[in-house]
């Protein structure tokens, strides 16, 4: 397969959750979530009970991908920030380190300026964590990949069939 799979371990996952929780409070936002560029949700925090986060993640990634395409057409590398303004709620989307998408949903209790400021700070931190994840994977792989023992290594035909018995 072309790209390496993204594998998230407890330690980094916790760090990421802490960083976005802090962002939510600092920016006075309702929801903050992190999506990879393929539309998979990585982490979310805030008032997410009432939200369909899976669909949000997929549409966000589609949105970013389409905007990326637009950027390339006019000779830009990317548009690193997208902002959608609604009557009550707004969505601020930014690309972190060129690989993940940070989404902040906020209403009139916050402002675009505040969100932009806090997102900028938080992005640096997230970028650092993602660099660590990559580094860790490379190191572990160099060691012989013991860390990468896939939980699916011993998957059997029965396991797969069991998934689909209606």
């Amino acid at each position: 397969m072309a790209a390496t799979d993204l594998i998230m371990y407890e330690e980094e996952f916790q760090k990421i959750k802490d960083v976005i929780s802090k962002l939510r409070i600092d920016a006075n936002a309702n929801v903050v979530f992190l999506v990879d560029k393929n539309g998979q949700q990585i982490a979310a925090t805030g008032d997410i009970e009432s939200l369909d986060t899976t669909s949000l993640a997929s549409l966000t990634a589609g949105n970013v991908a389409a905007t990326d395409g637009l950027a390339k057409l006019i000779g830009e590398k990317e548009f690193s920030v997208l902002f959608h303004e609604g009557e009550k709620d707004n969505i601020h989307i930014s690309i972190v380190g060129g690989r993940v998408i940070l989404v902040v949903i906020f209403d009139e209790r916050s402002s675009l300026g505040l969100v932009r400021l806090r997102v900028k700070r938080c992005s640096e931190e997230l970028n650092r964590i993602f660099n660590q994840i990559v580094e860790k994977s490379e190191k572990e792989q160099a060691k012989g990949g013991a860390f990468f023992d896939s939980p699916f290594a011993e998957i059997t035909d029965e396991d797969i069939d069991a998934l689909f018995k209606d």
Binding site: A3, L6, I7, M8, F13, D36, N38, G39
Partner: peptide, 15 residues
């Protein structure tokens, strides 16, 4: 590129 989350024990694949 499947996404495996060891923390929440989830795996997502794209078809």
């Amino acid at each position: 590129m499947s996404f495996i989350n060891y923390s929440t024990r989830e795996i997502n694949c794209k078809i």
